[in-house]
Write a protein that binds this DNA or RNA. Structure first.
Length: 482
RNA sequence: GACCUCUUCGUCUAGCGGUUAGGACAUCGCCCUUUCACGGCGAGUGCACGGGUUCGAUUCCCGUAGAGGUCGCCA
């Protein structure tokens, strides 16, 4: 197979669908695997929907996923232009060729139709096998509208011929169109390319993924701070398999194995839980700096998206983000910032390294960046309420009140404050009380954070500082055991 | 409705005539642990159904059912 040339040919609808993204990914993988060329062609024949923003969404989505193209509207190439809206002359020429052969006729209103041979088209599909498409009873397809604009089937084929496309890898929803397309290839004296119709990606309930569904657009993953390589990796696993137990795979590994044999034949449901798990695997592999960069970007963007209904965007959260990132608070946030500062010695004088410290603590706990919001509010807003179940558990313990008071006393007596000193304080209290250190940890956690779960406790206390820790203990301890 | 494709745990998948049907996500349990996690170990749940072919079918063939797709002067 020499000179493999594949293409991704989206129409600009304003967003990049994950199904489309996976189609692009598979085309890209096939090209890269075979030393071929990956062409991006924008099918913007529908003038109403064709906006620069919609085209930009395609570029940014593909780039975010790490896909690059060798020929395309932005970078040009030997078979351009790559915007269908600029290729009218080529379509006119191709139409003239069909007209010359007597293969077209004009409707009363001016629409042009292609005279179908009305035969059964045999499609040798690399994935579906030999598919027979009976075209004998189908009406002639329209190839040009009365206003002179051309129909998808026609421009698609003319472009594939002109751009020397050798393999068409596209969604299975196109399989019937291929009958029409092969007719056109033949009418234009061109050899049809090889076809591979890949199964579709469905929602978790088996329905078709549409724009409205969460996660249907690549933008969703961008906005929610997903790691591009993780989403890409997960997408590869939908309809493709290395045929062994590998799942977390480098792109190079996937590329090296990418061939028809490894492609599935059945539709796959998108499992957001597993996608998030996959993202978590990539987060674990990230450096603290990489994670902090993604997290901070998300925090800044998220704090701008005011939505009081969503606790992630409530005013407390936004104020907290302003404090930590140094962003400019709005009026209501500024008030909240003052409240936070008066409630928290730590936040009253946040050090420059506080955000990095906070994110370092949270990183091991999250699979996807937005999960940091919950941790942020729960652990770093001293006013956050005590979780009922955690409180019940603490109250069930004997002497919880005096133990917490004892802990506070030992902490207060510390001259210096770091993780080792926190350990020392807890150990001292444990010794005095005659209990194991482990018996103190849970009540301590609940008293300080109000939660039964959260980030690693000792480093958290070290980060919070002595004053904040003691204040929370003194304040919340009695409430817990009253 | 017609036509096309598909059918292994809830989900993604391995399996290409003989396997205790493997892995992953999710769920549950245990262990590890100074807390929370991570991690480790383990459990449960699956070959859609009915016929063939065969010494033997998850695997091959034919039906049935189910799911998805397509039937545009959208792409």
């Amino acid at each position: 197979m020499t000179n493999v040339r594949v293409r991704f040919a989206p129409s600009p609808t304003g967003y990049l669908h994950v199904g489309g993204a996976r189609t692009a990914l598979f085309n890209w993988l096939y090209a890269r695997r075979n030393g071929g060329v990956f062409v991006l062609r924008v099918e913007d024949t529908d003038a109403a929907r064709n906006t620069p923003e919609a085209v930009a969404a395609i570029y940014s989505g593909l780039k975010w996923l790490g896909l690059d193209w060798d020929e395309g509207p932005d970078c040009g190439g030997p078979h351009g232009p790559y915007l269908q809206s600029e290729r009218q002359h080529l379509y006119d020429a191709a139409l003239a060729k069909l007209e010359a052969k007597g293969l077209t006729y004009v409707e009363e209103n001016g629409a042009v139709r292609f005279r179908s041979p009305r035969e059964t088209v045999v499609l040798p599909d690399r994935i579906c096998g030999e598919v027979k498409i009976d075209r004998s009873k189908e009406p002639d397809m329209t190839i040009r509208r009365p206003d002179g604009s051309y129909i998808f089937h026609f421009v698609n084929v003319v472009d594939d011929i002109d751009m020397r496309i050798t393999h068409v890898i596209r969604g299975e929803d196109h399989i019937f169109n291929t009958g029409k397309h092969i007719e056109l290839f033949r009418a234009l004296d061109a050899e049809p390319p090889e076809y591979a119709h890949i199964p579709l990606i469905l929602n978790d309930d088996g329905s078709k993924m549409s724009k409205r569904d969460q996660g249907a657009a690549v933008g969703y993953y961008v906005d929610n701070g997903f790691v591009p390589a993780a989403v890409r990796n997960y997408l590869c696993l939908l309809g493709w398999s290395p045929k062994d137990d590998r799942e977390v795979m480098a792109l190079e590994e996937i590329q090296a194995l990418f061939d028809w044999e490894h492609l599935n034949h059945s539709n796959a449901r998108f499992d957001m839980e597993k996608c998030r798990w996959m993202n978590g695997e990539y987060v674990k592999a990230q450096s603290a700096e990489e994670f902090a960069r993604d997290a901070e970007a998300w925090l800044r963007g998220s704090a701008s998206a005011v939505d009081e209904e969503d606790p992630r965007h409530g005013v407390s959260f936004r104020a907290l983000v302003r404090l930590l990132t140094g962003g400019e608070p709005s009026e209501d946030e500024a008030t909240e910032v003052l409240r936070l500062k008066s409630a928290s010695p730590l936040l009253a004088n946040p050090g420059s390294g506080l955000l990095a410290g906070v994110l370092g603590l949270i990183k091991p706990k999250v699979r996807v960046v937005p999960e940091i919001a919950e941790h942020l509010v729960m652990q770093f807003d001293p006013r956050s309420p005590v979780a009922m179940d955690a409180q019940a558990k603490v109250m069930g313990q004997a002497d919880a009140g005096s133990r917490l008071a004892c802990l506070a006393g030992h902490f207060e007596a510390m001259v210096h404050w770091n993780a080792d000193h926190v350990q020392e304080g807890v150990a001292g209290a444990a010794k005095e009380l005659g209990v194991k250190v482990g018996a103190l940890m849970f009540p301590l956690r609940v008293a300080v954070t109000g939660q039964g779960h959260g980030v690693d406790l000792v480093p958290l206390l070290a980060l919070l500082g002595k004053e904040e820790t003691v204040q929370r203990l003194r304040h919340r301890g009695p409430l817990l055991t009253a």
